[in-house]
């Protein structure tokens, strides 16, 4: 069955519902183009052209001293055959699993708590919770390296329980979870504030009605808060996952990807390959970066598609 002429536009967002757009005058068009021109030019110079050029270069074995040799898609094959590339993607996904849900859960708890406070206390707590967001990742990394040392705070606490010491950053099983802790801590401020803004957007009358019906805190959270926060949660999930997959600084400073590559995230793998110093490594890391771009783009596109399908969920 074919779609009729008047059905088709209704499925296309905006086209059917929006009033018919009047054809704008050329002068308005020009103004609009001029307004967006600076950004388009900057994006063109610093984003689009480098990206196109990078794809072009990925067809060569690059040399800064000799004529580059055209090798076609050879380096794509090399990267896709490299177990370390896939292992790094696995590490990135594992890191995202450790950081994103835990970070969102803790942020939701804190945001819910802040919402119940007086304006003055809430303002104080909002400032406090945002502090980690302005701490440099480098500073946080060094701080947590001290915490995880043999005689550090973490092992001192374990010592109180007659346990440890544990080689937090030198044990293949523990290193990534140990790095995830500062990862969560650093992201807490921004996530909590966005979550709090979402919570404040939910009308109090919903909660009042629920309370009158005898709903508990858990029921109010499950049936009111979470469904109405769905778009905020999805946004935080997408941005958090993409950021986690792109994590570089924490493992670079805290473990340099070790032990036994247990914390080699995709970006760190590319970075370490790049600084190998050989011509081969330049082409390889460039191609790996482009493939990672495609992976991240795919994940983002997938989740954004989910978001747009739930577009009208807000009450």
């Amino acid at each position: 069955m074919s779609i009729t002429a008047d059905q088709q536009p209704r499925t296309m967002l905006g086209a059917a519902e929006a009033p018919a757009v009047k054809r704008s005058r050329p002068r308005d068009d020009l103004t609009a183009y001029l307004m967006i021109a600076p950004m388009v030019i900057l994006l063109g110079i610093f984003v689009m052209w480098p990206l196109v050029y990078a794809f072009y270069l990925s067809g060569f074995e690059i040399s800064f001293y000799q004529a580059p040799e055209f090798v076609g898609l050879q380096f794509y094959r090399y990267v896709l055959e490299d177990e370390r590339f896939w292992a790094s993607l696995g590490v990135g996904l594992y890191y995202a699993v450790l950081v994103v849900p835990a970070g969102m859960f803790v942020s939701l708890l804190i945001a819910s708590f802040i919402k119940t406070l007086s304006v003055r206390m809430a303002s104080f707590l909002k400032t406090t919770i945002y502090v980690p967001a302005v701490v440099s990742t480098v500073v946080a990394s060094v701080l947590f390296v001290f915490i995880y040392q043999d005689q550090g705070l973490a092992n001192w606490l374990l010592g109180l329980l007659n346990a440890g010491p544990v080689a937090w950053l030198n044990s293949p099983a523990l290193a990534l979870p140990a790095i995830a802790v500062p990862g969560i801590w650093l992201g807490l401020g921004l996530t909590t504030l966005i979550m709090l803004a979402g919570l404040l957007d939910i009308p109090d009358s919903y909660y009042e009605s629920a309370r009158l019906d005898g709903a508990s805190f858990v029921q109010r959270t499950w049936y009111i808060t979470l469904p109405l926060l769905k778009n905020v949660l999805l946004y935080l999930f997408v941005t958090g996952t993409v950021a986690a997959l792109q994590m570089l600084d924490l493992p670079l400073i805290m473990t340099n990807g070790g032990p036994v590559n247990a914390t080699t995230t995709p970006n760190l793998f590319i970075f370490n390959t790049f600084r190998d110093g050989s011509e081969y490594s330049v082409s390889f890391s460039l191609t790996a970066a482009l493939l990672l771009f495609l992976v991240l783009g795919g994940i983002s596109a997938l989740v954004f598609r989910l978001i747009s399908s739930e577009k009208a969920i807000d009450g």
């Binding site: 030198n170 044990s171 293949p172 070790g258 032990p259 036994v260 590559n261 247990a262 190998d276 110093g277 050989s278 081969y280 490594s281």
Partner: peptide, 20 residues
């Protein structure tokens, strides 16, 4: 030789040490 070769053996030694 390229450093990748040194890293391959270095990783093997670390892997043996840490029991992976």
């Amino acid at each position: 030789y390229p450093y990748d070769i040194a890293m391959a053996l270095g990783t093997a030694l670390e892997s043996a040490m840490k029991g992976t």
